[in-house]
Design a protein around this nucleic acid. Structure first.
Lengths: 369, 369
DNA sequence: CGGCGGGCTGCTAACGCTAACAATGGCTCA
DNA sequence: TGAGCCATTGTTAGCGTTAGCAGCCCGCCG
């Protein structure tokens, strides 16, 4: 396309060609190296020279070529993200946080969305990212087998897993959810429900397990019967189905593992001719933006997903530069709205009749237990 | 980090270093060029040679270096996306479609999210993408001023705008929405409402205008009063506020420009002590996945946003390769659920009493008008 | 007045790959 | 049998940038 340039003849009146370092150098009357130094903010350039070069850069509209730079420096200042191609609120928000944090740090982001969470798909995505020469990757793949795949890739390629932080760190996210789920359940018990049913997420998601664990713990602590949990797949449709089964089981209080399924549960209750919260109390998890405006407004647990994304990026960047970074903590918190109330027959008990009774009726503060 | 290699001595027992073309060539006993040809699927390689090279590639675990390749070919096989960093259903799904289509075509995707839709932000994002040497970009920025910014960038950088297709193409998306909005309004009129109120989106979004236009058209066609539209910002919160104002205006039927706001409107109606659809009918737009499970299930317009994303990619890729591509059409369609009914006082009229009466009471088919 | 250290700048050689052309060898056809 | 052609392979020259070192000029010290 472009006619071959004669490297000998220092042409200059050439037609519009995107300018390169050499063009700037020529215009400013300095060497390429000096221009490079200016572009990269090296201090070893005299004030006057720097100004001249900057002027030339501006006049020519020069922009450094990322490929050439990546080729020689072996770093691209780009990080990759592998995310499940779902419309789930949590992952989507996390991705957003990743974007923001990366941008702030001067990194760009390459995203690969995977259709499913099979280890093979995740592996492939990671490989693609590696081929694209990203410096590291964040994996938003909240399913066990795929997390294992990421952990394996770790050995040869810096990557961090969705909730951020390994070992103690992931535990921090996990136990935060457990505590919140426990608080939800205690809240329901506090209202006078004899027990609380649970509509869980898919079994191989850590989020399913943490929420179920918190629920179970609260029930056991209170010495209540633990009804068998029903499973959904995070969608409203599965929530509807699960809701019907829960209704058949005579549930008066249901803790649903996410808001979307909770919407389905509410619908099932209403279709069953009952009321929320009059006959059945429903609590969700995640606090989607619409939760406060649903009918009824949904009691749920607020999570800052974007913060999770940010934290992952900081962690990754810290690892890339061998710096230890201080990543902010997460704390999911119960938000009580109008989808929970005392059960139909028995009035709400007053006083600390519930074992986990340290949770006040209207909890809005960060969980602590 | 890596010790400098002596180019003279053809070392081979070197410690783990990511293999390059030369390593493969040496191992297979051919020239780099031949390896390059194999990697790029050139037909000008003998079967036996190809096999030998492929074997060497596999043994060494060779992967081409994208930066080097981009440097010399001047194309990166990457496309950029600039998207608003919002949690809106539509844009998020569109992004997903972009991802999928790009991947299928062997392109990778760099995403830049912008915090706001100001032209400057979009310009900056586009510049960043250009610096990253993407071959082209898809802009999911559904706001007028920012679209103008994209159009300006067009001149020097291939990019396509969110709904996909310019001129006639954008018009196709636009008029599809108009038709759907018209159908919604006709549906409401058909049920016996005297007129239909409208809760619109922000004024500088094409989506706001198309939906408002369809609504107004239907009203005018039917010879009805056109009440002043109320404006929201797509959020449920703004829907709630708008709903209160509409209630005060005595609306019995409201066409809301998106589902999230519709959720807020329903809440406002209920908080006002009225029923949906008993007292007020509400229709949304977009058909978010939960729409069918809301309380009441929301009558809305289904849109295939992922298809929009796919279409943009095909269009962009077509432009990059000077090929004309056949991109699929969009057709939003009305989905009648339980949030619409006859107004409280007057029973639904039967027969073609409405001017735009060609729309049957229960419409589920693609809009045609 | 010679030498020396710093601040600043320039030269050269990669980085890993592909485009363009050159070279080789076997085969066909006259 | 030799010219010519095709299929296959190799050689050379960059792509635009940065690393590493060499060089220059100046002021300062002895």
């Amino acid at each position: 396309m472009t006619p071959p340039r004669d490297p000998g003849a220092p042409e200059d009146g050439d037609a519009a060609r995107t300018p390169v370092l050499a063009d700037v150098a020529e215009r400013a009357g300095v060497s390429q190296q000096t221009v490079s130094r200016v572009v990269n903010g090296s201090p070893a350039v005299a004030r006057r020279t720097r100004e001249r070069v900057e002027q030339a850069i501006k006049e020519l509209g020069y922009r450094p070529n990322a490929a050439a730079r990546a080729l020689v420096t072996r770093r691209s200042r780009r990080i990759g993200v592998v995310a499940a191609s779902s419309a789930l609120h949590g992952p989507a928000m996390t991705l957003l946080g990743v974007q923001e944090a990366a941008r702030e740090a001067g990194y760009s982001v390459a995203v690969v969305m995977v259709r499913d969470l099979k280890p093979a798909s995740v592996d492939e995505a990671l490989t693609e990212l590696r081929d694209q020469a990203v410096d590291g990757a964040v994996a938003i793949v909240p399913e066990d087998a795929s997390q294992a795949a990421v952990a394996a890739a770790e050995a040869t390629f810096p990557c961090v897993l969705a909730p951020g932080l390994d070992g103690a760190g992931v535990a921090d996210a996990y136990w935060g959810e457990v505590a919140a789920a426990r608080e939800v359940t205690a809240h329901l018990l506090q209202l006078g429900h004899e027990t609380v049913h649970h509509l869980a997420g898919p079994p191989d998601w850590a989020e399913s397990r943490s929420r179920a664990t918190g629920w179970r713990t609260a029930l056991v602590e209170a010495g209540r019967r633990v009804p068998p949990p029903v499973r959904g797949d995070w969608t409203a449709a599965s929530g509807y189905l699960g809701g019907q089964r829960l209704l058949a089981a005579g549930a008066s209080a249901v803790f649903v593992a996410n808001d979307h399924m909770a919407i389905g549960v509410v619908r099932a209750v209403v279709d069953g001719g009952l009321c929320v919260p009059g006959d059945v109390s429903v609590v969700g998890f995640d606090d989607v933006p619409e939760a406060a405006y649903l009918n009824p407004p949904l009691t749920t647990v607020h999570q800052d997903f974007a913060q999770i994304g940010r934290r992952c990026v900081h962690l990754l960047l810290g690892r890339l530069t061998d710096r230890v970074v201080d990543v902010g903590g997460l704390n999911p918190r119960l938000v009580v709205r109008a989808s929970t109330a005392a059960p139909p027959s028995s009035p709400p008990r007053t006083g600390p009749s519930v074992a986990a009774g340290e949770v006040p009726p209207q909890v809005r503060t960060p969980s602590s237990a």
